[in-house]
C-alpha cells in the first residue's frame, strides 16, 4: 500500500496527462460508436442514447449511400490537394527567402505572414466574400481554392522555416567547397535535409484545407461546389446521414495509421543510426 501511494506521488502528473488525453478522445470514440448505430430518423443521428441504440453495419457497407456525400468528399480531397500543392510551393519559397537571405522588408514580410494566423477566420471569410462580390467573381471551386491557399501559406512558412532555421548554413558552403554549383548544393544537400519540414507543412496544409468550414462557408456562395464540411453543415436542416460517422471514423483511422507509421519509421531510423555510430 505504501508503494502504491509513492507510485501515485511520483506519477500523478503523468496520470493526469493521460486522463486529459482520454478527454480529448471521448468525442472521437462517440463518433466511432455512432457509426454502428441506425438512428430512427436522420434527426437523431447525433443522439447518444443506449436505450435506443440499434446496431448496424450499414453505414460502413453503404458509405456512399446518402446522396451527394461521396461527391462532397472527393471535392474536399481535390480542393485539399490543389491548395496544398500551391501553398506548399509558395510558402517554401518564402521561408527560404526569410531564412537564407538578408534583405530590406524582412520585418514587414514576417508581419504579413503572421497576420492571417492572428485574424479570426470569420473576418477572412467575410472580407473575401466582399472582394468576390465587388469584383463579381462567380463563387465555386476557384474562390474556394483561392481562400484555402491564402490561409495555408502562413502555416507552411512557419513549419518550413522552423526546419530550415535548424540547418547549419555551413552545409551549403561545404557542398560548394566540394565544387557543387549553388543549384547542385541546393538539390543534393539542402533540399533532402529540408524535405521532412516541407512534407510536414504539406500535411498540415492538407488537413487545414480539407477540414475548413468557416471560410469555405463564405466563399461557396450559392454554387453547388459542396465540400465535405459544407455537406455536413448543409444537411443540418434535413438531418445528417449516419454515413458521416463512418466516413469520419475512417478518416480518423487512416490519419492515425499514417502518423503512427511515420513515428515508427523515424524511431527505427534513429535506432539504426544509434547502432551504427
Amino acid at each position: 500500500m505504501h508503494g502504491f501511494w509513492r507510485w501515485i506521488a511520483e506519477k500523478w502528473v503523468l496520470l493526469l496527462g493521460f486522463v486529459l488525453l482520454a478527454y480529448l478522445f471521448v468525442p472521437i470514440a462517440v463518433v466511432m460508436l455512432l457509426s454502428f448505430n441506425q438512428p430512427a430518423s436522420r434527426n437523431t443521428t447525433y443522439v447518444l442514447d443506449f436505450a435506443t441504440f440499434d446496431f448496424t453495419w450499414n453505414n460502413w457497407t453503404d458509405m456512399c449511400g446518402a446522396a451527394g456525400i461521396c461527391d462532397s468528399l472527393m471535392r474536399s480531397i481535390y480542393v485539399g490537394l490543389s491548395a496544398t500543392l500551391i501553398a506548399t510551393i509558395l510558402g517554401t519559397l518564402i521561408s527560404f527567402a526569410l531564412v537564407r537571405y538578408r534583405f530590406i522588408g524582412r520585418g514587414s514580410t514576417n508581419t504579413l505572414i503572421f497576420l492571417p494566423m492572428a485574424t479570426p477566420e470569420i473576418v477572412m471569410g467575410t472580407s473575401l466574400l466582399t472582394l468576390f462580390i465587388g469584383l463579381q467573381i462567380p463563387m465555386g471551386f476557384l474562390t474556394i481554392l483561392i481562400a484555402h491557399v491564402m490561409f495555408c501559406i502562413s502555416f507552411v512558412v512557419v513549419t518550413v522555416k522552423a526546419r530550415l532555421a535548424g540547418l547549419d548554413p555551413r552545409l551549403q558552403e561545404a557542398a560548394m567547397d566540394l565544387y557543387a554549383t549553388p543549384w547542385q548544393a541546393f538539390r543534393l544537400v539542402i533540399l533532402p535535409l529540408v524535405l521532412p519540414g516541407i512534407v510536414a507543412a504539406a500535411l498540415l496544409a492538407f488537413s487545414l484545407s480539407f477540414d475548413d468550414f468557416i471560410i469555405t462557408n463564405f466563399v461557396t456562395g450559392t454554387s453547388d461546389y459542396t465540400t465535405f464540411p459544407m455537406f455536413i453543415w448543409g444537411s443540418n436542416l434535413r438531418g445528417i446521414p449516419p454515413q458521416v460517422n463512418a466516413i469520419a471514423t475512417a478518416m480518423f483511422l487512416i490519419s492515425f495509421a499514417f502518423v503512427i507509421a511515420g513515428q515508427l519509421r523515424t524511431r527505427r531510423r534513429s535506432a539504426r543510426r544509434a547502432a551504427t555510430s
Binding site: 488525453l21 480529448l24 478522445f25 471521448v26 468525442p27 472521437i28 462517440v30 463518433v31 455512432l34 443521428t45 447525433y46 443522439v47 447518444l48 442514447d49 436505450a51 435506443t52 488537413s207 477540414d211 468550414f213 465535405f228 464540411p229 455536413i232 453543415w233 445528417i240 458521416v244 460517422n245 469520419a248 471514423t249 478518416m251 480518423f252 490519419s255 492515425f256 502518423v259 503512427i260 513515428q263
Partner: peptide, 26 residues
C-alpha cells in the same frame, strides 16, 4: 499524437459528437 488526434476527424463532426454526448437523453 494524442493531442493532435482530434484533428484527424472533421471539426463539425467533433462538435456534433458533443451534441450527442450532452443531448437530453445522453
Amino acid at each position: 499524437v494524442g493531442v493532435i488526434a482530434p484533428f484527424f476527424t472533421s471539426y463539425l463532426v467533433r462538435t456534433y459528437s458533443w451534441k450527442a454526448i450532452l443531448s437530453d437523453s445522453g
